[in-house]
Design a binder for these strands. Sequence first.
DNA 1: ACGGCTATGTGAAAAGCTTCACAAAAGAAG
DNA 2: CTTCTTTTGTGAAGCTTTTCACATAGCCGT
Lengths: 217, 217
Amino acid sequence: MLGKKRISESTIHRLSLYYRALSVLEKDNYDTVSSKELARREKLTPAQVRKDLSFFGSFGTRGLGYPVKELKTQIAGILGIDRTWRVALVGIGNIGSALVSYKEFSRQGFQIVKLFDNDQRKIGSNHKGIVVSDIRNLQQELSDAKIEVVIVAVPATVAQYIVDDIVNAGIKAILNFAPVNLKVPDDVYIRHENMSMELEYLSFAMVNNHAQKRVRA
Amino acid sequence: MLGKKRISESTIHRLSLYYRALSVLEKDNYDTVSSKELARREKLTPAQVRKDLSFFGSFGTRGLGYPVKELKTQIAGILGIDRTWRVALVGIGNIGSALVSYKEFSRQGFQIVKLFDNDQRKIGSNHKGIVVSDIRNLQQELSDAKIEVVIVAVPATVAQYIVDDIVNAGIKAILNFAPVNLKVPDDVYIRHENMSMELEYLSFAMVNNHAQKRVRA
DNA sequence: ACGGCTATGTGAAAAGCTTCACAAAAGAAG
DNA sequence: CTTCTTTTGTGAAGCTTTTCACATAGCCGT
């Protein structure tokens, strides 16, 4: 709580869950919520909730719980979603097109304001009010549009080239949907969204008969 | 390696990464690969790779490395993707439409063979050769079509109702894209795909100035 | 105003996961 | 056939994360 402390990735991911739960609680007019209730809603333990929050401060009141509205604001501040981020999306294929309209992003302050593709049939077309730019102008337009985050939704085979360009344009945060690992310099944050992974986990769980708790060699 | 052992979620997720890397290596005609090279390709440590694989057997040859083709086959068996799974998709909105055409799923054996929606304008329409069914027939059609896995891509507000129906139809594996936690019985596997989470992680990393290593209270 | 009750915040213990480090195995070279 | 080199497989150590458990704080009812 005081001084400096390393925060784990899991804790940050759980903050996203708390934020989501608090949004629902706020809409349902709850004033306060206990760690127990928050835990129940996101399938965690009360101790985990309290420990996570304690890394960032003392937001609760003993005997009462946490103030819903205020805690939500605090978490938004911690996650950096108490502001808007200017986002570009590269690759207007299946996934890319879906993401342009994905309301969850804008709801959290991630505003997609630029689109890029290399397909002449797509360049110039309009998606949700945004005209698709030619990927050849990527670097120039990213910097002109003051983009802070780029989402990559291109085929795996070209993803590394695109990412190199993005990095050269000075972008420091990338979300990659291509199913491939990508190299970026140490000062660039990159995160991967691998949609097959969870299906594979389900498959593993099913094959390793009912429980996923044990496995035979 | 011998007997029974709990396998962590992280290990299973890394198996997905190894499988992906091995697919590339196979295509590039590599016969063998070392833990060092596999680790380099997926940004892990060699020890991690060896330990993960050792939970399931001894697949390598000392001094040489792992046989690419055979290891890939072994991992496919462990993950249960050495077969096809019959998958249904509920909710043909932005995300749902994208997933119908998402090739990575079919490549891993997840065949989407049924589509459902509640919108009269979508029911009866054809997506990649599959006619969208009325969600009111969900239970009957899931069982008639021998579906094993259901992907949920409906609005958060109705996701729990849909999932209840799916569970009642006897389905034991669910992949949920709705940004909400869902209750299922203990014998049903459910996994969540939360696409905002990684963006929020990026945001956190950026706000907590360059390093994400330290945070002030 | 005070006692009871509830739920936080947090050190400490426990559990879980990753890295280390090395013996052992196997191909390669001469 | 023997030595050298390489890289696996794996206990043990080290580190991280989660859970426990309880003192403490603060609301609520009387």
